[in-house]
Amino acid sequence: MEKIIKWKEKYFPYLMCAPAIILFTMFIIVPLITGFAISFFSWDGYSTMTFNGGENYLFVLQDEVYRQAIGNTFVYAIAVTVLKNIIALGLAFILVKKFPLRNFFRSGIYMPVMMSYIVIGILWTWIFNPTFGLLNAFLRLIGLESLIRGWLSDPTFAMASVIVVDVWKWIGYHMVLYIAGLQGISRDYYEAAEIDGANAWQRFKNITIPLLNPTIVVNVLMAITGGLVSNYDIVHIMTDGGPFHATEVSATYIMRTAFNYGNMGKANAMTMITFVIAFIFGFIQLRVMTRQEREEN
């Protein structure tokens, strides 16, 4: 009996973890390894695979569009991260206070989070439409005709337009996290600081930011990883990488290379390179943002 209990104690945690580990292995590790292997082959997804060494990686590095897509991906990720967090934090400061209709505004701002990218993409494509779009109609109404343009067809503005939509969709989510973080900060700190004569900026800089840091780390990490790897849907629906690759991100170009161009090997090589870049970027970012906590520990 004692043996059984010991066996249980020893192996039960492993058994509990096993389903998650097996699923993670099957759906993350195995595809990653398979993808890495395919990246060394010339393959259209249909006919016989031919080993071509590291040629696919060479093709990727020579590919101007891929380089542009990687650049766009970073612009996109950094822009949405900065905007989402600044706007969401600002809204959280306003909506953490008690005032009439507070919950109405909170719910309204959170609403887009629950909508799918398909719905949002189509909705905003119509808002940006040059003939029927609300945006240009509004600009015309207030006499700002000079600002009217093809928001999704002008290479200069297309990326900014897509970024605005992504930010609009997610600020509610980040705002809720920031509200929770702000509510977790004890009023005592602010009262003590006020007695010591600290002004609003000093209270924000020396109390709010340090105590909100874990929430900021989570928010920034989620926004940046989302911006780096979960940008396919919105870009695909709104511009599909156009015009003239102005909004091409690595995910749309990888999908196009794999399924439109039938070049699985090169698409997998792109995926590996994107994965390594995102991994290094995420790792550095995490290290930098948690430096203080690590030093304290």
Binding site: T125, F128, N129, P130, T131, F132, G150, W151, L152, S153, D154, P243
Partner: peptide, 15 residues
Amino acid sequence: KADSLDTDTTGLVAS
């Protein structure tokens, strides 16, 4: 004109 660049099939028919 440039509005063609932003117009999809539905927009084309509606226009």
